[in-house]
Computed example of a mutant assay.
Amino acid sequence: MNNKTKKAICILSGGMDSTLASYIAKNDGYEIIAVHFNYGQRTQDRELKAFRDICEDLKILEKYEIDIPFFTQIGASALTDKNIDVPTGGVETGVPITYVPFRNGIFLSITAAIAEKEGATAMYIGVVQEDSSGYPDCTDLFISDMKRAINQGTKEDTHIDIKTPLVHLSKAQIVLEAKKLNVPLEHTWSCYKEEEEACGVCDSCRLRLNGFKIANQIDPIAYKAL
Results as ranks from 00 to 15, higher is better:
P96V: 08
K117E: 11
V100G: 06
A8P: 06
K224T: 12
I60G: 02
V183F: 12
D17E: 03
R148K: 15
V95C: 14
A21P: 02
F142W: 09
S132Q: 02
A76T: 11
I150H: 01
K7M: 06
I221W: 01
D17M: 00
N27G: 10
K179T: 04
C138L: 09
K6W: 06
C205Y: 02
I125R: 05
T72W: 05
C199A: 06
Y192V: 06
S109L: 12
F212Q: 06
M146V: 05
I68E: 01
G90H: 13
G105H: 10
S77I: 08
I60N: 05
K63M: 11
L166K: 13
I214N: 00
K147A: 14
E186Y: 14
E56V: 02
N182M: 12
N182A: 12
A215C: 02
V127R: 10
I66Q: 14
Q173P: 10
S144P: 02
I54S: 03
I125N: 10
T93N: 10
D140H: 15
I221Y: 03
I218R: 14
G119P: 01
T19C: 04
M123V: 15
E130W: 08
I97Y: 03
S18A: 05
I143A: 02
P136E: 09
A198V: 01
V100M: 02
E56S: 15
C205Q: 04
G134W: 09
D28V: 00
A25E: 01
N2L: 14
W189Q: 08
Y135N: 09
T43R: 07
E65M: 01
S170D: 13
N2H: 12
C199S: 01
I60P: 05
S170R: 15
E56L: 10
A8L: 05
L141E: 13
E62K: 13
F51T: 05
S13Q: 11
E186P: 04
G211Q: 05
K4L: 14
S132F: 02
E31G: 02
Q129C: 08
A225L: 00
E177N: 14
A113D: 07
I214R: 00
I114T: 14
G94Y: 11
Y30R: 06
K180Q: 09
T88M: 14
